[in-house]
């Protein structure tokens, strides 16, 4: 039964990684950039939700929606101010800019909200559901997290395959020039991608802090790196890949934590990543592309 408990815990943590990884993977797919500021958007989302609930006494649902709106705006503003002027620049320049944005968000958060850790109150309450006569208990947070992840995933797959904007996104990630010739507004499409990624980051931030309730200006950075790893693990640029990568990473982390060593769990997660990438250099579900001269 402990095995099952750990498995569910892993899937739950993995779902959070998967939601964050989606933001990475979609932005990478379309803008070909590693958006290192993504992890810090998570933190901002969590803070907005925290203050909306604590200081303004808003109901959790409203607080989450408010966090999503703020993060969406933040994501679009970041994209417009910092990334759009660098569309034609070498990828390293964009990477450093993204890191600059990440520092900016962390330090702005430090000034606004101080470094004192806040204790986040779960948005779904503290109860749990019991199975097998109380042997297996699953908290509401876990259930909501896994459900949210599944809903988001289905919605995104539907969005990218059925709607006009979703198709435009796929077209842009395939070939920006050709997409433009077909009358797709590439800049708008990229902005929408950032907006969706940031909104998802807000959800992930709230879920993350509901499960692990310490909130600090640096809260987002480690999950951000892990989720980025998850995105690469599953094959960066692929939406199902982000789900698979995220969940596997979560399970590996929890199992390593429980059965091998708490201190080395991060090392084990990253070691597995390295092994997977050596065997499958484009990630689990990534497309293998042949290089041509």
């Amino acid at each position: 039964m402990t095995f099952l408990t750990y498995l569910i815990k892993g899937i739950s943590l993995g779902s959070i990684y998967a939601i964050i990884a989606l933001g990475y993977t979609m932005v990478y797919g379309i803008a070909k950039m590693l958006n290192f500021a993504h992890g810090d958007v998570i933190m901002v989302g969590a803070y907005i939700c925290f203050y909306a609930m604590m200081s303004f006494g808003l109901p959790p649902v409203v607080a989450v929606i408010l966090a999503m709106i703020v993060c969406t705006v933040l994501g679009v503003v970041i994209e417009r101010l910092a990334y759009k002027p660098l569309r034609a620049a070498p990828s390293l320049a964009v990477l450093i800019t993204a890191i600059g944005v990440s520092y900016f968000l962390q330090n702005a958060a430090q000034l606004l909200w101080t470094t004192n850790p806040k204790v986040f109150t779960s948005v779904v309450g503290d109860g749990s559901v019991k199975f097998f006569g109380g042997q297996l208990s699953i908290s509401y947070v876990t259930i909501v997290t896994i459900a949210a992840c599944l809903i988001i995933m289905v919605a995104l797959v539907w969005f990218t395959s059925k709607t006009k904007m979703g198709k435009a996104m796929r077209a842009c990630s395939e070939d920006k020039g050709a997409a433009q010739l077909m009358g797709i507004n590439v800049n708008t499409t990229i902005s929408v991608t950032f907006a969706i990624g940031a909104a998802l980051a807000a959800i992930a931030g709230v879920l993350l802090c509901s499960a692990y309730p310490t909130l600090m200006p640096t809260t987002g950075s480690m999950p951000g790196i892990k989720a980025f790893t998850a995105a690469v693990f599953g094959g960066i640029g692929s939406i199902p890949g982000a789900l698979v990568g995220g969940i596997l990473l979560g399970i590996i982390e929890i199992f390593a934590n429980a059965y091998i060593s708490t201190e080395l769990s991060n090392a084990i997660v990253f070691a597995v990543l390295i092994i997977v990438l050596i065997v499958r250099p484009a990630g689990l579900l990534g497309k293998q592309t042949n290089e041509k001269v």
Partner: peptide, 19 residues
């Protein structure tokens, strides 16, 4: 550190933006 990050972003924008 806030100033540092802003300097970093501005330098990257200034050295890489075609305009």
């Amino acid at each position: 550190m806030l100033v540092y990050s802003i300097v970093l972003i501005i330098v990257m924008l200034a050295t890489n933006n075609p305009l």
